[in-house]
């Protein structure tokens, strides 16, 4: 498909059009501070926001906490096939979960446990990337997404999350970044809110906060830089 003449034509039209300067010049701004201030801690704010968008949060202090809460929830919901994409979660936590190492996303999976890149306090957002073991489809196709993270993965705002990713990967960004805020939803039928239209119906976050074994050495957080 040779596209060079079309490309040339469009660029030429743009350049010709732009010889006429814009009429309406707007005043210059800005200090870049647009959002309401909130003096609470990152953790407190994340908890509030995450709950507001129907995320389910369990704050854990220890490994045992996590084990106990997870098995409770698992029994309650009757999840048959629990998958986990992070090998170190399975070994370190002794998780009773099936591995996911790529290939077809399992149709039978009832829930999947993954790590994440970071967490955004202002919006309750979980940041995921295709460079991690879970890839693109697993975390959106599986009906329940369970994220394990630590409090030191919290950042202030979306912009900080973006900066963190750019710092980590440099020019070799993952092919896809996902800023996921709560369970999938739609309002397309008379604005009635329905959760779980294509993506997960439920999103859980197990957040290790202070005193935990995994606060600074969170397995899911180990970066995996993709070489081109």
């Amino acid at each position: 498909m040779d596209n060079s003449s079309t490309r040339k034509n469009i660029l030429k039209k743009i350049r010709e059009a732009l010889t006429a300067p814009s009429v309406r010049l707007l005043p210059e701004s800005s200090d870049g501070l647009f959002y309401r201030k909130d003096d609470r801690s990152l953790l407190d704010r994340f908890c509030t926001e995450f709950a507001a968008i129907d995320g389910k949060l369990e704050v854990c202090r220890e490994k045992d906490d996590f084990h106990k809460k997870l098995s409770e929830i698992r029994n309650e919901n009757g999840w048959q096939h629990l998958y986990c994409s992070t090998a170190s979660f399975r070994t370190d936590f002794g998780l009773d979960a099936l591995p996911f190492t790529g290939g077809e996303v399992p149709e039978s999976a009832s829930a999947v446990i993954t790590g994440c890149e970071c967490l955004v306090a202002r919006t309750g957002t979980i940041v995921l990337s295709s460079a991690q073991e879970y890839g693109r489809a697993l975390t959106v196709y599986t009906p329940v997404h369970i994220v394990v993270a630590s409090a030191d993965q919290l950042v202030e705002d979306i912009g900080d999350g973006i900066s963190k990713i750019v710092r980590r990967y440099g020019r070799k960004l993952p092919s896809a970044l996902f800023f996921a805020s709560g369970p999938s939803r739609t309002g397309d039928i008379e604005k009635t809110l329905v959760k779980g239209v294509h993506g997960p119906v439920q999103v859980y976050l197990f957040l290790f906060a202070a005193n935990g074994d995994y606060v600074t050495d969170q397995p899911g957080y180990q970066s995996k830089i993709i070489e081109l």
């Binding site: 190492t101 790529g102 290939g103 996303v105 295709s130 460079a131 073991e133 879970y134 890839g135 693109r136 489809a137 697993l138 960004l173 993952p174 092919s175 896809a176 970044l177 995996k224 993709i226 070489e227 081109l228």
Partner: peptide, 12 residues
């Protein structure tokens, strides 16, 4: 999205 699946990525 910054491109097709990269080497080392599991899907895309």
């Amino acid at each position: 999205f910054t491109g097709p699946r990269k080497q080392g990525e599991v899907d895309g």
